[in-house]
Nucleic acid binder design. Structure first.
Lengths: 216, 216
DNA sequence: TGAAAATTACACTTTTAAGTGTATTGTATT
DNA sequence: AATACAATACACTTAAAAGTGTAATTTTCA
């Protein structure tokens, strides 16, 4: 066993139904030790600091002190405590904030027992876990922003790729020619062909293109 | 059953071992009907358009036509066909590109049968699925990006950053000078200072450095 | 307030890349 | 067999960047 024989948990949620449900799900498990509960963020922080707790399963929306603030305070004092966030909210910004605050896992409120146990296992092994439902949502948001696509229209040949990588490494046409046993004019031709087909105007923009399209 | 009695599949991968393995895993399943195979992107597109296929499980790296291009072509003609991408690559940008190209699910090559079946079930119910391993990787990258630039050793000044970005955009010293109301010799001095402090030898390597260090 | 760093600017030479055009050979694809 | 594309190679001109050195302001911060 890479961690203690049993894992002592703290369930923090302001809805009695949720805490009870989680309690029922977890109490029978072999690896689960003591299960504490808290009905708001303040109580969660207090118990986390006072009791011997390995892992906290908590909601984001709680009275007194929300999950975000609670997570920050707990991680500040006891960074070894793992925090699994359970939420209905899948807002990318929220997830991002929670992860920044130190959360180790993020799962949906309607996930089953198997996934919850998987998440506990992962975090106790110092891994992070984000449930597919939540990450799907995140990817959808990411798609809109930063992604550029290298498509078939303007793709580079094998030789051109070989050369652009050497260009990016700072080699001159002559050096590349020597390396590839080519004439320097050939290398220059390839360079110019790339600029033409990608509609770029010089080496700098070519290297930037290559970097953006993961060609290097 | 919300979809046909059985699901007809196409497995597209250039590695025989993978196609065979997936075939073995899937052939016994109640919901699985005919299983076609393809050993490259071109073949995958051809079969997808010719045969009656519900769902395609495919690799990204394939000869002839890669997964990205294949997915685009297939979705263009037959958008109802679901595409599950199986890959070792977890590059966030790659995942994003594939999703944009129309992929419905993204799973790791070393995932088990259960997860594969889960992905098939999800996509056939018009949902998307991204395996946790892949999304975790994305988050790790996002975190790296957010933290970034911390090394005081060889960092660039504000002015230098401003100039390197314009260089990467393909502007010449003269153009940059005009843009920033500077003399072209000043721009050149900045350029040379950057090369010196970063121990690089030319524009190409400078732009590569900038891209690698998220300076652009 | 004084030192260090940043920003600005120039001269001069050499090397490299960009712009334009042509052309041969091999290799797939149709 | 014809076509298209990739890869190779060259000539010639102009533009840009690299290499080396110097130096005056201005800003920052210890």
């Amino acid at each position: 066993m890479p961690y203690e024989i049993t894992i002592d948990l703290l369930i923090a949620d302001d809805h009695q139904l949720i805490t009870d449900g989680l309690y029922q799900i977890l109490q029978g498990e072999k690896l689960v030790g003591t299960i504490h509960t808290a009905k708001n963020g303040r109580e969660a922080v207090d118990k986390a600091l006072a009791e011997n707790i390995d892992c906290i399963i908590m909601d984001i929306n709680m009275p007194e002190l929300n999950g975000l603030e609670a997570a920050k305070l707990i991680k500040k004092e006891k960074p070894q405590i793992k925090i699994i966030v359970v939420s209905m909210l899948c807002e990318p910004s929220v997830v991002s904030k929670m992860l920044k605050a130190g959360a180790d896992a993020f799962i949906n409120k309607d996930t089953g027992k198997a996934e919850l146990l998987k998440a506990i296992d992962k975090v106790m092994h110092n891994e992070t876990y984000i449930s597919p439902e939540i990450s799907n949502n995140l990817f959808r948001h990411l798609n809109d922003n930063n992604v550029k696509i290298a498509d078939h229209e303007n793709h580079l040949t094998k030789r051109e790729l070989e050369i652009i990588r050497l260009i990016a490494d700072g080699l001159t046409n002559n050096e590349i020619a020597a390396r590839l046993f080519l004439s320097n004019v050939t290398v220059n031709t390839h360079r110019k062909n790339m600029l033409a087909k990608l509609q770029l105007k010089n080496t700098a923009s070519l290297v930037k293109y290559a970097a953006e399209n993961k060609l290097l």
